[in-house]
Each structure stands twice: as C-alpha cells, then as structure tokens.
C-alpha cells in the first residue's frame, strides 16, 4: 500500500529562517528513519541551500515532501526564490565558485551530500533547487 505523501511549505526570508529549515529537515529525516549520519547530511544540505535562497535569492519558500513509493522512500526538499537567478549554473556548481564573498562550496558540496540534486534558474526570475535523499 502506498502511504500518503506528506507535504509542508514554509516561508524563508530572514537569516534565522535557516535554523527553522534545519529543524524541519531534522524532524522529517528522523521521522522517515534516516540514520544519524544521513540526517546530518540532509540537514547540512538544507542549511546550505536555504541560506543561498535567502542571501542571494532574497528569500522564498522551502517545501518538504516525503517520497513514499512501493520501491523507494525518501525525503525531497525544494527551495524556490524569485531573486536574480544564476547566470552560469555549471560554473556555480564548481567548488570554489562564489559571488557572495563565501567559500563557494554550497552547491557542489551539497550535491555530494544528497542522492539527487536538481537546479533550475532563469536570470531575472529566480532559482529553484530540489534535493532528494533516499532511505
């Protein structure tokens, strides 16, 4: 039997909202049965992308969705902002790339922590990043 998909959307606007995203991610990951290391990876990845969406994208939403398929269970988190977008996604994915005075580890590093990483961005319209981890 396929269990119901649970979904929750929260607004992210201020830097403190990164902490809220981390708490939600932890709660979902724990509830789904991820082990401590996997939980840590998910929470860290969510923290990175949430901060990007707030600092570079001016805020937006974070949407948590549980994946409950007969053959696959997992957690999907999507971040959508309506900021300036990313001109060159390929370059932005490389370690060391930064425009915001950071270390530029966010995107490439986050991808390594998760099983799936999807990014869509349109200059002037915004960016959406979806990260997925399977049990």
């Amino acid at each position: 039997m396929e269990a119901a998909i649970e979904e929750k959307t929260i607004k992210i606007k201020e830097s403190n909202d990164v902490v809220t995203v981390r708490r939600e991610a932890r709660e979902y990951a724990e509830k789904l049965g991820f082990n401590l290391l996997e939980q840590t990876k998910i929470v860290t990845a969510a923290s990175e992308i949430a901060r990007n969406a707030i600092v570079f994208g001016g805020g937006g939403i974070a949407r948590f969705t549980t994946i409950e398929k007969p053959d696959k269970r997992g957690l999907q988190i999507s971040f959508i902002d309506h900021g300036p977008g990313i001109e060159d996604i390929e370059a932005a994915m490389k370690d060391g790339y930064t425009t915001g005075g950071g270390l530029g580890l966010g995107l490439g590093g986050t991808k390594r922590l998760m099983d799936e990483f999807h990014i869509r961005s349109e200059p002037g319209k915004g960016t959406s990043v979806t990260i997925v981890k399977y049990l």
Binding site: L37, T40, K41, T44, E48, D95, L103, L105, G108, G109, T110, R112, L113
Partner: peptide
C-alpha cells in the same frame, strides 16, 4: 564526515 564531504 559531513563537513569533509561538503568540501570543508
């Protein structure tokens, strides 16, 4: 482990 995998 997570920190090193992240690249830091």
């Amino acid at each position: 482990i997570t920190l090193v995998e992240l690249g830091l």
